[in-house]
Design a protein around this nucleic acid. Sequence first.
DNA 1: GCAAAAGTGTTCGGAGTACACCCATGT
DNA 2: ACATGGGTGTACTCCGAACACTTTTGC
Lengths: 249, 249
Amino acid sequence: MANIVTNIINPHISVDCVIFGFDDDNLNILLVDRTLKEKKTDHIIFNDFTLTGNHIYEKEDLNDAAHRILYDLTGLKNIYLEQFSVFAHPERLSKPNDKLWLINQGKDPESRIISVGYFALIATNNVTLEWKGRNVDWFPINKIKELAFDHNQILNSALKALQTKLLNEPIGFELLPEKFTLSQLQKVYEVILGTSLDKRNFRKKVSRMKYLIPLNEKQKGVAHKPAQLFVFSREIYEKTKRNVFDFSI
Amino acid sequence: MANIVTNIINPHISVDCVIFGFDDDNLNILLVDRTLKEKKTDHIIFNDFTLTGNHIYEKEDLNDAAHRILYDLTGLKNIYLEQFSVFAHPERLSKPNDKLWLINQGKDPESRIISVGYFALIATNNVTLEWKGRNVDWFPINKIKELAFDHNQILNSALKALQTKLLNEPIGFELLPEKFTLSQLQKVYEVILGTSLDKRNFRKKVSRMKYLIPLNEKQKGVAHKPAQLFVFSREIYEKTKRNVFDFSI
DNA sequence: GCAAAAGTGTTCGGAGTACACCCATGT
DNA sequence: ACATGGGTGTACTCCGAACACTTTTGC
């Protein structure tokens, strides 16, 4: 894998991943702590957060780079991943703290780097997180303050892309365990779209999705009527998806 | 506008524009002739076509670069333009003819260039085209053969993006003159989506689009019942567009 | 008067929306 | 027994789909 050629990094192009998770209540984003300290005194100059991102290798495709970042972070392959936009404003790395940080990292703060934005969906459970020895953690998306670089803009753009995608393709269960209940799925739609849905209408709609397969299995250990569990069948989805030729007003 | 700083080009990043036009019958794409000749004999080594593209300047935003390309090509500003994807495969410029071409242009065929794809919609009428002294022309999209570099892939991806966009937002008249008939608009939907639509149902649907304003004006000089002309009102569209919170099966 | 495209209405089925109560389980 | 979320049906309206004939103009 790692030979002389594949290890040359391309200093002009990076990939940033907006990683969405869901914990039965909130839509969360994975952020990496960025703390700049005075070298001798360990005095904290500033402290904020970034998305997970990295430069690509010279011979590496963008999708591979994004998967590599997710693999380094989680140890998982086959995470749902989608390119949604490019961020290339000439001043995107030019806030004072960002320049300080880049200089401290031995980089030229004037050099132009364009970043390709990906969003990823992962089921939050049972993932241990590790990113280049830095602290990473989940944050509810509606409690995120000012981030490093242009990462607020990237995040907002990712959320819009996720909303659009969710309205057009069944990707909600990428945020859920393999077996999930309809209430969990409904909650995913609600938190991503920022709305609330009627339970009966939601289930009526879902009952038309042939690719949601009910199992002979129920929730266990819950203090209420246990819910039926479902799985998503990609095979059935691919077979039955119809071409939408309708357009909206 | 052009000073020392803005004239430095960035050799790593380019913008490619897929320019769609419509001529009452076909969906067309603007292509640029690429002919490589033996220097002394003028013997043609090969001849094919490319999309319109260019490197960006060091201090230039991507949207500005795409608009600049369209302005250089058509003399028009305010063309409808949308970024849809990035093309960055390490081998994207590595077909034999592409390498020959790059060497002939004094470029290093091994250097990696990523390209940001934009699609543009322009009303074909009354535009004079000029691109760096090379021949440019419209080609019906379904008659396009093998293009230079990865431009077939960029074109296919642009068409899909255009279809998706058209299904979700009213952009069809960007391909039409300011005043247009409903039959013209219907034809735009048909050629982009590759389908055929029922005239009565189409008009029923259109009658719900409050932002399509009928004029007290009809077609002239046509050998049949003259059609009513319409204009698009962006103001009314922005006011009345509803948020779509429905999701599909 | 003929060719060509414009313009128009009805019926049917399927989907969205609004809305309230009983059920199964753990404590 | 009680708290908790699971699970279900009906009425209304709107929209999509299928489908054929008359009208107005230029030639």
